[in-house]
């Protein structure tokens, strides 16, 4: 458990220092077009990877729970209907929980 605590503190302080660096570094470093492109792509590729890994590898390697997938499918429908993050979240959770209750 101590290892997890160290990770929590390091990640949290690192997150703060990232924000501080943005306010403090000379703008020219961070406004370079290549740097900006990498920064814009980082959340895109990482969030996509997180979705994929969590769905198809939910803790146990390559075991997929169809109820979680159904919840995600409902989330996609909500996104296509232009619902906000919170509604999408609630729908995914409710559908998954509902199916688990019924099956």
């Amino acid at each position: 458990m101590t290892g997890l605590w160290v990770a929590v503190v390091v990640a949290a302080v690192g997150s703060y220092l990232t924000k501080l660096a943005g306010l403090s570094l000379p703008g020219s470093v961070l406004t370079h077009p290549r740097v900006q492109r990498v920064a814009a792509f980082l959340p895109v590729s990482m969030l996509a990877a997180l979705v994929a890994v969590q769905l198809f590898d939910g803790g146990q390697r390559h075991s997929v729970d169809w109820r979680t997938l159904a919840g995600m499918a409902a989330a996609v429908v909500a996104l296509l209907l232009r619902r906000g993050l919170l509604v999408v979240f609630l729908i995914a959770v409710a559908v998954t929980a509902g199916l688990r209750l019924l099956t």
Binding site: L50, R67, M72, V76, G84, A92
Partner: peptide, 29 residues
């Protein structure tokens, strides 16, 4: 029981979604 295992992927997908309007970003994703 609460379906919370679907919560994190749903949040990630919702955060990612607006960026997917760009074709280049779709490939990166």
């Amino acid at each position: 029981d609460l379906g919370l295992d679907a919560a994190a992927p749903a949040v990630f997908l919702a955060l990612l979604w607006p960026a997917l309007r760009r074709r280049e970003a779709r490939w990166v994703a």
